[in-house]
Amino acid sequence: MTPRFPVSLATPLLPIAASTRRGDAHARLHEDVTAVFDQLRDPLLRYLWTFGLEVSDGEEVLQEVFLALYRHLDAGKPVENVRGWLFRVAHNLALRHRQRTRRDSEVQLEASDAERAADPAPNPEACFANDQAQKRVRAVVDALPEQDRRCLFLRAEGLRYREIGEVLGMSLGAVSMSLTRSLARVARSAER
C-alpha cells in the first residue's frame, strides 16, 4: 500500500480552519483522515488482534477510532501526535470491548500451537529450529505482565518510547525499563 499521508505522523494534524469554506474544509478533513487510515489501519488492526479481537471486530473498533479522530478534528481540536493518539484510543476501546465481552481474549498461544501442529508444514526439518526459537520466545512473552507485553507489541508496531508512554499512561523511564526487562528475559532464554 502506498502511504498517502503527506507528512510525518508525528506532525500535528490540525482541525478545520474557521476561515475555510465548510465544504472544502470537510472534503480536506475526509482526505486527511482517509490518508491516515490507509497508513495506520494495518498496525492498529494487528494491535487490536493482540487483545484477542478477531479481524471483523477489530475493523468495527477501528471505525470508532477513526470517527473519533474525525469528530475531534471537526470540533476544532488539534492532534499533536496522530499515531500516538490513535493507538491510545484503540487501546482504550479494545479494553472496553474486552470487558464488554467478558472473556479473557488475549490471544492464546497454546491454541496457535494446536493449529500449527495440525497444519502440515512443507519442510518440517528446516522449520524445526525456528519453531523451537518461537516457542521459547512465546513462553517468555506469555509469562510477562500485560503492561510489559503491551510495550513490546506497541514497539513492534513502530511506536517510539514517548508514544508508548502516552498510549499506556507510563513515564518514559517506565517504558524504557519495561522493554529492557522484557528483552533481557528474551535474550536470557536464548542462552539456556
Binding site: F37, L45, W49, Q134, L183, V186, A190
Partner: peptide, 20 residues
Amino acid sequence: AITDFVRLHQSEFAPDLPSP
C-alpha cells in the same frame, strides 16, 4: 532478542488482513 520477538510477532500476531 528484538529479532526473536519480531519473528514471533510476525508469525503469531500478524494475521492475513483483508483489503482495506
